[in-house]
Amino acid sequence: MLKELYLIPVAVYIFSYLPLLFQKKKMYKVFISLIYAGFALQTLIFFIFLGIKGFTVPVHIDRFVFFNAWILMFIVVLFGLFYKVEYILLYITPLVALNLLIGFFVPHVHIKLVMLNADKTILLTHIVLILIGDSLFALAFIVSLIYIFQERKIKNKKNLKLFDKKDIQLQEVLHSGGGYNLELLDNINYQCLKIGFPFITLGIVMGIYLSGSLFGTFMVVKPIEIMSLITWLIYAVLLHERMAKGLRGKRAAVFSVAGFLLILFSLSFSFYLFPAFHGLK
């Protein structure tokens, strides 16, 4: 039982928010450092699992959730460093911690796959691709929510504070710093979509292949396939509108939010209502 290990990064993540209570700008740096420390521990645990089990299909539901949390954090850390928007960690970390807690509390159930050994590599690729794509869309979702709130503030001109450069406060870093500008948020949203879409597309294609293989036919359309295709279609339309017609801003953000909510719905739909469609027993 290695599930207790999940609680270590969770504890670090929760503890990292405490310095912010001091309302000092220096404490923000402590917060970021602690989050990185939490992510380092999460990565260490990930490699411990790899060392024990190797790179195989996660057969325990808690490992699956842990893997999901790690990929999400990894992507957010990468984007945060690249776009200098580390403040996003402030919003994503609770989601990651929640994921880890779910991983800890769910029963250590062994997922039985009704699948040929030959398909297991494809299944592993399907999982990795879908998780990377979904994590990118999760980031786009968070960034879109920030965009919508920020845009609303600018449009309504309410709670829009200008800070003196000589005395940057913690509040600025947390709520209205440079990284909160609409252009950057929209750009991150677009990049998440551009990178995430091919991952999701390939993942869905592999999913349809696996589904066909599982049921012995490609001719019967399953509810999970319909759900996945609707989600894919939303992102395809969004990508097309962005690339061809220059859709951006609030509408694009609303699209991203809707798309991600549909992903959450389709995942719940497929795992909890129709586990058989995912080859689970």
């Binding site: 920020q150 600018i154 829009l160 200008l162 209205s176 440079g178 909160y180 500008n181 609409l182 252009e183 950057l184 750009n187």
Partner: peptide, 12 residues
């Protein structure tokens, strides 16, 4: 100054 700061809330 405020005008420039506000524009930085829109543009990166």
């Amino acid at each position: 100054y405020a005008a420039v700061e506000l524009s930085k809330k829109v543009f990166n």
